[in-house]
Each structure stands twice: as structure tokens, then as C-alpha cells.
Amino acid sequence: MYNLMIVTHGPLASALKETLKMFTGDVEDVYAVGLTESGVEEFKEKVSKAVEDCYEEGKELLVLVDLFGGTPFNISMLEIKSKYKNVEIIAGVNLPLVIEASLSRSSTLSETIESLKESAKGAVMSPEKATSSEDDE
């Protein structure tokens, strides 16, 4: 079992957490932090506070960030990954990823990460590709 933290630009993290609640009804051990116009230093403090609240010694933590190389990613690497054990970070957060990460928390974090990476490959599709010839029969 692992805790889940969503770290993004703007209110996206909070919106993903609230939307997750619509699908699962449970957002316990899910934490959300967004970078606002108040600046990087305040954001860094929010991230540090959130990780203090959600990190449990001996328990794993999955951090989902929006953009690889963006400020939320960089701060997560500096303030979480480099300071705590059993932490993994995945960039490219979206709603299907959040739902799957939340529903997979009974698995190990390493199993979940492999599953998330595989699922993400098929997450973007155009409507033409979403139907198959079998649907026409």
C-alpha cells in the first residue's frame, strides 16, 4: 500500500483529486499541491508540508506530476525524491492515470509503476481508432 501525491501547475492537482472522488468515493491518503502565482518559494513550502503529512516511514509514496522538467517536477525531485526513501515520481499525470494509481494501491509501487507506464501508452486515442471493425458487425 502506498500514499499518492499529485503535484502540478495551478489548480490541476486539486481538480484531479476532486474528480477522483467522483470515481472512487475515496481520496484518503491522496494529497494535492498546485503551483500558484504566489511563487516558487511558497510552493516549495506547500510541497514540504504535504510530504510531511503524507509520508509514512516504511510506506511507499507515489508522486504524480504534470510536466517532466517543469517546476512541480523539479521541486518534487529536490524536496521529496532526494530526501525520502521509497518514493517514485511519474510525470504526465492525467485523470486515467490518477484513477488507476488510486485503485492499484493494494499492489506494490513497482508493480503499479509498470502498469501505469503501460496504460499510459494507450491513453491517447482519436475517435477513429477507438472503434473496431468488430463493432460494425
Rank of each mutant, 00 (worst) to 15 (best):
S106W: 11
L103Y: 01
I99C: 06
G122T: 13
G25I: 08
K85T: 06
P72E: 05
E60V: 01
S115P: 07
L16Y: 12
S132A: 06
S119K: 15
S106D: 11
F43G: 00
K59T: 07
I89L: 11
K83P: 04
T108W: 09
I90T: 05
N86L: 13
S82I: 00
D135T: 01
T112R: 02
S126W: 09
F73W: 14
E18M: 09
P127A: 09
G39F: 04
S119M: 15
T24G: 08
V124P: 01
G25W: 08
K81C: 07
G58W: 10
K49I: 04
V40S: 04
H9C: 03
F73N: 12
E111Y: 04
N74Q: 13
V87G: 02
E100N: 10
S126I: 12
G34F: 03
F73D: 13
D53N: 15
S133R: 14
E114H: 05
K85C: 01
V65Q: 00
A123F: 13
E137H: 10
S82K: 10
G122K: 14
N86K: 15
S106G: 12
K83G: 07
K44Y: 07
G69M: 04
C54M: 14
A13F: 04
Y2H: 06
E128G: 04
S126C: 09
I6K: 02
D135K: 06
E57R: 07
K81H: 14
K21D: 12
S133H: 14
F23V: 10
K44F: 00
G122Y: 14
N86D: 15
T36Q: 11
F73G: 05
T8P: 13
E60G: 07
N74C: 11
T108D: 08
L35P: 02
V47H: 01
P96E: 06
A123V: 02
K59F: 06
I80M: 02
K85S: 12
K46V: 04
L97Y: 03
V98Q: 02
A123W: 10
